[in-house]
């Protein structure tokens, strides 16, 4: 950010001490005692820290490896045109059909609709908590949001099933309670706490001097938020939204209960759909390990992994692009 550079550390140790303990001794670090043992101890610690850092990369690679390994046998015989182009998903019929298009569309649709609700709501709540609420309201809301974040996804599924379903049938003209909109509402409610808490942190991290500068120019609060806080906090806000998207795409239990699980491309917000995640969860128990159905489910797992990775990479590029522009 724009803080003035901190006063430079005085260059330590490069000056002869000249304090009489052996003329010309250079350096502020006294000679190591117990030389070799100390050196070895340091090496071990350094190795462990390095391992911690690399473990994340190792884990990602391992996950990819094992999932691909499970799916591998089916890959050569896979009809890719059918997988990506057909909406017919009949994994257990005599002539199994593995058309995943409706699942992909359903998954993305529910995530997009969820984000269309969660991002404005989450950002708005974060702005309110960080800029408008008094200290007591702020603390209360933060606790409420933490509680909201701690609700297990299966409980959200129940809420979709028992509370939102009847509402959608009565007021939105849905034939079935489990549908795209129901899943999206649940996903939005699940993502909002995540988006709020991370956005709020990002907003609070903007130095008060920015607020003061904007207000001193006669800006009102909303203008200050829009023109100064949002640009200043944009990386954090973007990260918050991307985490929300990640959650919406990958969430399983709640959408399994709330979306109705009909394999079709939705034509309205209240059409039932089925997602990639729900398909794996629902069918993995029936599938026999080593059989094509089982392997195709793993293939869907790979697809999900690729989608979420792509979202993260894109977010990264957006952030880097913003930075590059700033540095130009």
């Amino acid at each position: 950010m724009s803080l003035p550079p901190a006063a430079a550390e005085p260059p330590g140790g490069a000056v002869p001490t000249g304090d009489g303990n052996g003329g010309g001794v250079v350096g502020r670090v006294p000679a190591r005692r117990g030389g070799r043992a100390m050196f070895r101890g340091e090496w071990v610690i350094e190795f462990l820290i390095r391992l911690c850092g690399w473990s994340s990369i190792i884990c990602v690679a391992a996950i990819f490896y094992f999932i691909i390994q499970e799916a591998a046998p089916v890959l050569p015989t896979m009809d890719w045109g059918e997988f990506f182009g057909s909406v017919i998903w009949r994994p257990t019929s005599a002539v199994p059909r593995y058309g995943a298009l409706a699942l992909i569309v359903g998954n993305l649709a529910v995530a997009i609709v969820a984000m269309a609700m969660a991002v404005p709501l989450g950002l708005g709540a974060a702005v309110y908590i960080s800029e408008f609420a008094g200290p007591r309201v702020r603390e209360t809301m933060k606790i409420a949001i933490e509680v909201l974040a701690a609700v297990p996804s299966i409980v959200w599924g129940f809420i979709g099933l028992t509370i939102i379903s009847p509402l959608l049938i009565r007021y939105a003209g849905a034939e079935l309670g489990g549908n795209l909109l129901n899943g999206a509402v649940i996903l939005a409610l699940m993502s909002v706490p995540l988006i709020v808490s991370i956005s709020e942190d990002a907003l609070r991290a903007v130095p008060d001097s920015y607020r003061e500068a904007a207000m001193a120019l006669g800006a009102n609060k909303w203008e200050m938020v829009r023109r100064v806080l949002f640009p200043a906090a944009r990386n954090g806000l973007l990260a918050a939204c991307m985490l929300g998207v990640g959650r919406a795409v990958g969430e399983t239990m709640a959408v399994l209960l709330a979306t109705g699980n009909v394999v079709q491309i939705p034509h309205s917000f209240v059409d039932p759909i089925k997602t990639l995640t729900a398909t794996i969860a629902a069918e993995m128990g029936e599938a026999t390990p080593g059989q094509p159905h089982y392997q195709v489910l793993f293939l869907i797992g790979i697809l999900l992994l690729v989608i979420t990775c792509a979202i993260n990479v894109i977010a990264d590029f957006i952030i880097k692009g913003a930075k590059a522009k700033a540095n130009a």
């Binding site: 724009s2 803080l3 003035p4 130095p207 001097s209 920015y210 003061e212 500068a213 904007a214 207000m215 001193a216 120019l217 006669g218 800006a219 009102n220 023109r227 100064v228 640009p231 200043a232």
Partner: peptide, 27 residues
């Protein structure tokens, strides 16, 4: 807000707002 617009204020620590030099002044 109108009062503040009549009074220019420069603080001890520099604050470039997160927008271009031009926009900072044109804001």
């Amino acid at each position: 807000y109108a009062l503040r617009r009549r009074i220019g204020m420069v603080f001890p620590l520099p604050v470039g707002l997160p927008m271009s030099v031009y926009d900072n002044v044109a804001y």
